[in-house]
Computed example of a mutant assay.
Amino acid sequence: MTDDPWVPPVVLLAVDLVILTLRESRLHVLLIERGIDPYKGNLALPGGFLRHAEEDITAAAHRELSEEADLDVETLRLEQLGVYGDPGRDPRGRVVSVAYLAIAPRLPEPTAGTDAADAGWQPTDRVLSGDLDLAFDHQRIIADGVERARTKLEHSALGTAFCRPTFTITDLQGVYEAVWGITLDPRNFYRKVQKTEGFIVPAGTSRKAATGRPARLFRAGPCTALYPPMVRPAEGPSAKE
């Protein structure tokens, strides 16, 4: 038995941010190009270390997003995604990161700042396929963020936020296809949407189509939670549900 006092291990605390939006009918994630080592020149999530022991973790996430990408943090609702602390995830030492997620429509182009050499939107499918070389374990964090977003579309009315004030069911289907990364059968999608009470409501007008009958327009309904949920079908080239 030893009388030596216990010495706590040195653990650094950081934050990482997964910011998702739709651009040109594809799901995109905000990435920066690292301007410093380690992984200088690699793409990474915006984020960084807490500045001091008294800094609130969520406040640090807002600060890093503002500093590294110059986005208006007041317009984004951050939610905690998870905690990542595998040994060896950062060559600088034992680093535990608290990851945050935000999903929002029509986000502007970011501007790089602090230790970021560049900042921009990248398609999530390129990240998930491994086509982009990301620093640290950020591919895993993004994969978790995308899966959270896909689940949100099943159980909430989030999809309507990515549409214009009035939209067609085809427009809404495009949002689901972009986030879920699959092709949906239009008839089954229409049936599911109409069966979910309060999800969308008729706008009383139609949009003239190039061919065929004018498409009916809808707007977001009063409900925020979907029941029954819009259950994601099995993935494949064309999900028939």
Rank of each mutant, 00 (worst) to 15 (best):
F218C: 08
Q173K: 11
G88K: 04
R94C: 13
E74L: 12
T2I: 06
E74P: 09
G41L: 04
D3W: 08
L43R: 12
G48Q: 08
R148D: 08
V179S: 02
K192F: 05
R77G: 14
T183N: 04
R126H: 15
D90Q: 10
R219K: 11
G82P: 09
A157Y: 01
V175M: 01
V175S: 00
A239S: 09
A14C: 08
D86E: 13
S238Q: 15
K195V: 10
A178K: 01
T166E: 11
L65E: 05
D185P: 00
V11W: 06
S25P: 09
L78C: 07
R150V: 02
G181I: 00
G47M: 05
D16I: 04
A104H: 15
T124V: 11
T183L: 01
R219E: 14
L43E: 01
G93K: 03
D131I: 12
L20M: 04
S97R: 10
H62E: 13
H138P: 04
K195R: 12
H155F: 14
T224K: 12
V18P: 02
K152L: 14
V7R: 15
T211M: 13
P228C: 01
F136R: 05
G113F: 00
R94I: 14
R191I: 10
A69K: 05
P9L: 08
R219Y: 04
L81H: 05
V29H: 03
P46E: 08
C163T: 07
R77F: 11
L172V: 03
A102P: 08
V179H: 01
L22N: 07
T151N: 15
L76A: 00
E54Q: 13
G113M: 03
R51L: 13
L158P: 09
Y227N: 14
A210S: 15
S97N: 10
T170C: 09
I169A: 11
R26V: 09
A149R: 02
R92L: 11
E79Y: 06
G113R: 01
R23Q: 06
L22E: 10
R219L: 08
E177W: 02
S66N: 14
D16M: 05
Q173L: 09
R140E: 10
G35K: 12
T75L: 15
I103A: 10
R26G: 07
S97P: 14
T166R: 09
V95S: 04
V73T: 13
E64L: 08
V73C: 14
A210I: 15
S156K: 08
V127F: 07
L81D: 06
Y190I: 03
E54C: 15
I200S: 00
F49G: 12
I141K: 10
I141H: 06
P237V: 00
L50A: 08
H28V: 12
A116K: 06
P38T: 05
I169M: 13
I103Q: 11
L27S: 08
P123M: 01
P38S: 07
A157E: 02
H155R: 13
Y190P: 07
A60R: 04
R77P: 11
R23G: 07
D185F: 00
H138Y: 07
